[in-house]
């Protein structure tokens, strides 16, 4: 069962990772690995376009927080879907992340 779809676009120094579908315990590790891999090349900017995320639980939040910790030289921003924004707000993580 694949509930999460990931796609990368943009230039090497300005990357966008598009995230669509459901982020839970089964799919969050895939997301976290993809985000950490993209950050490993130290792009100047990385946008996580999560406008099509339909579900996110605490494991999903942990994946986004892991990316934030790893983004030491990268300007990282997140475009959440309304549902994802609600989850981030409920957990208080919205103040930590650069939401657009």
């Amino acid at each position: 069962m694949t509930d999460l779809v990931l796609r990368q676009s943009g230039r090497p120094d300005e990357l966008t990772i598009h995230v669509a579908g459901e982020i839970d315990g089964a799919t969050a590790p895939t997301l976290e690995q993809a985000l950490l891999k993209a950050l490993a090349s130290a792009p100047r900017r990385l946008l996580i376009d999560a406008a099509e995320v339909t579900f996110c639980d605490s494991r999903g939040i942990a994946a986004f927080v892991a990316a934030w910790r790893a983004a030491t030289t990268t300007s990282l921003s997140l475009r959440p879907s309304p549902r994802l924004r609600r989850v981030l707000t409920l957990s208080g993580i919205d103040t930590l992340l650069d939401l657009i």
């Binding site: 069962m1 509930d3 459901e22 839970d24 315990g25 089964a26 579900f55």
Partner: peptide, 9 residues
């Protein structure tokens, strides 16, 4: 198994 949680949701 975590893969089945989407069914319950």
């Amino acid at each position: 198994d975590g893969g089945y949680l989407s069914v319950l949701r």
